[in-house]
Design a protein around this nucleic acid. Structure first.
Length: 579
RNA sequence: GGGCGUGUGGCCUAGUCUGGAUAUGGCACUGGCCUUCUAAGCCAGUGAUCGCGGGUUCGAAUCCCGCCACGUCCGCCA
């Protein structure tokens, strides 16, 4: 893709490079953006060169600036406070940007195809109950990353690593098969995952009270981990409905997962065994009461205990060992492995990494860790019933959105229309509130914040999109086959600001995808929506008497709508024509 | 005890990797703007020892050292 801003930036870098070469200064270029638009569009700090020139930073900047020339992109160069500030000629920028948006449409902002395949592993929640909002951060970050990476030109697959072995599903399995079924009336309107969690909770309690139950559950674990086909399929029957329920919740917030990889796969195909064979033969492996562990002290692992157990005393594998086998397999499937994990998995992730190294695998997964969402009264806990389920959050947000729509537009929309719009606003709000904060920040969930649809929230962006759509739907002037020269009519500061910001979209996608920071997209979109609202205030479109300016503005509205749409698409939030 | 992460106005948050111009926005609060394209909006205002203490630097929210608080982990759990 040929984006004008890339070209302009490259142009400036080339100019500075040749100036620095003439002066025999080291070529170290960091282009910044001035804090104030009045200063220019790009700035080049010259402080580091003042040591060489033995002059003040500002004098140095002047010396460098003298060797620079303007061209058709660069309108003006001025030195101020040790910076060389570049003002770009807005005409080509405006023309090219609007033109590029209207011709590239849904792919505006997207980067060139890279022929690199990424597996994004996310969610991977134990299928023993509904997703709660602590876990919900995972699919939202994961899905947004997947969408973002696709926009950045990668091909991607999302994977859910399905925990079908071990204690959690075994408890569920026992509960489903041994506890009395619930009465039809009490489960009438319940989702499958919400029904199942009751069995899990009861079975969990019984396990702690009744040694026989505990033994039964342990049998299930033992059999499944030894690859007993019958037990594994019994477990599968138990968790499938839960998974179905979880997927319904995810689907509601526009998340679908491409592939499910059951953990048992790697036991059944004996790849775990092969992994163990190799790991046992490394010098780091030791044995203790029949169990094998790797001593990770020499790998920089510190703490009370540096032993990483890879088998139990009975020879069966452990979760992390199977995870190594899974990652070893993934490494053969993709160019880049990206995992989204809770911060509690940091050590385990490091152990997997070391395991892969010992297997001679160089494709080490990259990981985005997120902190937990807690409640004002403390950590979320299903057992203590101190938990907010994702479904409840979605329901509340949709309900709130419905009330707002009804308040404003009851006389214009049908009941069905209001419900449809409310669903999109409510679910969008859920995603946006989670993705706008960088993953490593702790979050305390507050209903008040979650249900606030003003300011930096999804409805603000959807609203700007709806306003743009509204203008276009009322317009009767054709904007097909417009010559881009007409866009130079767009001279109002609000128009220029908006266009300049839209020109940055590819940069933002680039930056966000390289650093795996989806929240950058959220704050960028917020800026676009905000600038659009300012434009909306300052520049009437439909009533504009100058025909050419009107057309240019219509094109600008269409571009803004497109950029908002493309950005919302990366965030997995529905754009709205009306709200 | 150790590892990792976080700490920015009353609350939330950007910027931290790659040091740079008066620290970004939002919520709340105060005042103003709907006979004109949707007021879920716009404009203005109040409000910050950037956790604390040192250091490096012409320059530190950003880098280094020490400390404090919170989260998280250090299971033959997952």
């Amino acid at each position: 893709m040929d984006y004008i801003y890339f070209k302009i930036q490259q142009e400036i870098i080339t100019h500075i490079t040749s100036a620095l070469k003439i002066l025999k200064y080291p070529v170290q270029i960091k282009l910044e953006r001035p804090p104030d638009q009045g200063l220019g569009d790009f700035s080049f700090p010259c402080f580091s060169f003042s040591k060489i020139s033995r002059k003040s930073p500002n004098e140095t900047a002047k010396i460098i600036a003298e060797k620079l020339s303007t061209n058709h992109f660069i309108k003006n160069i001025c030195v101020d406070g040790g910076y060389i500030n570049f003002s770009i000629d807005e005409t080509p920028l405006i023309q090219e940007t609007v033109h590029s948006i209207l011709t590239n449409k849904q792919s505006y902002g997207h980067l060139d195809k890279k022929n690199i395949f990424i597996i994004v592993e996310h969610t991977s929640a134990n299928p023993n109950g509904p997703l709660h909002i602590g876990r919900a951060r995972n699919p939202i970050i994961g899905d947004t990353l997947t969408r973002l990476l696709k926009a950045a030109g990668y091909s991607c697959e999302s994977q859910f690593y399905l925990d079908d072995l071990g204690k959690q599903v075994a408890i569920l399995c026992w509960g489903i098969n041994n506890l009395p079924k619930e009465e039809k009336a009490s489960i009438a309107n319940k989702k499958l995952d919400h029904i199942a969690v009751g069995f899990y909770q009861k079975a969990n309690d019984l396990m702690n009270e009744d040694p026989q139950v505990k033994q039964d559950i342990q049998d299930i674990i033992w059999k499944s981990e030894h690859g007993d086909i019958q037990t594994i399929s019994l477990i599968q029957e138990a968790y499938q409905p839960v998974l179905k329920g979880m997927n319904e919740s995810l689907k509601r917030v526009n998340i679908t997962i491409d592939t499910y990889i059951p953990e048992s796969t790697f036991v059944k195909d004996s790849s775990v065994e092969k992994v163990l064979d190799i790991l046992k033969n490394t010098p780091f492996c030791h044995e203790e009461h029949g169990a094998y562990y790797l001593d990770l002290e020499s790998f920089g692992i510190k703490g009370r205990n540096t032993k990483f157990f890879i088998t139990r005393g009975d020879g069966t594998s452990l979760y992390a060992t199977r995870d190594i086998a899974y990652h070893a397999w993934k490494a053969t499937q993709a160019d880049i492995l990206l995992n989204v994990l809770g911060e509690d998995h940091k050590l385990e992730s490091k152990q997997v990494e070391i395991g892969l190294q010992l297997l001679g695998i160089e494709k080490i997964p990259k990981t985005v860790f997120y902190s937990f969402v807690s409640l004002p009264e403390g950590k979320m806990s299903t057992r203590r019933n101190r938990v907010v389920y994702l479904d409840d959050l979605i329901d509340e947000c949709v309900q709130r959105a419905y009330e707002e729509v009804k308040k404003r537009r009851a006389d214009e929309f049908s009941e069905l229309e209001m419900k449809t719009i409310a669903e999109k606003i409510g679910t969008g709000a859920v995603r946006y509130n989670i993705i706008k904060v960088q993953p490593e920040k702790d979050m305390v969930f507050q209903w008040e914040d979650a249900l606030n649809f003003e300011g930096n929230a999804a409805p603000f962006i959807q609203y700007a999109h709806a306003r743009a759509s509204s203008i276009l739907s009322k317009n009767e002037t054709s904007i097909k086959g417009i010559e881009k020269q007409i866009y130079s009519k767009l001279m109002h500061p609000s128009e220029i600001q908006l266009i300049k910001k839209m020109a940055l979209f590819p940069f933002v996608i680039q930056e966000a995808s390289i650093t795996y920071k989806p929240h950058l997209i959220a704050s960028y979109l917020f800026d676009i929506a905000s600038l659009f609202n300012q434009f909306y205030r300052d520049c009437p479109v439909l009533s504009e008497p100058d025909k050419e300016l009107k057309i240019a503005r219509l094109c600008l509205v269409a571009s803004a709508k497109q950029v908002l749409n493309n950005g919302l698409c990366i965030l997995g939030i529905d754009a709205l024509e009306e709200m």
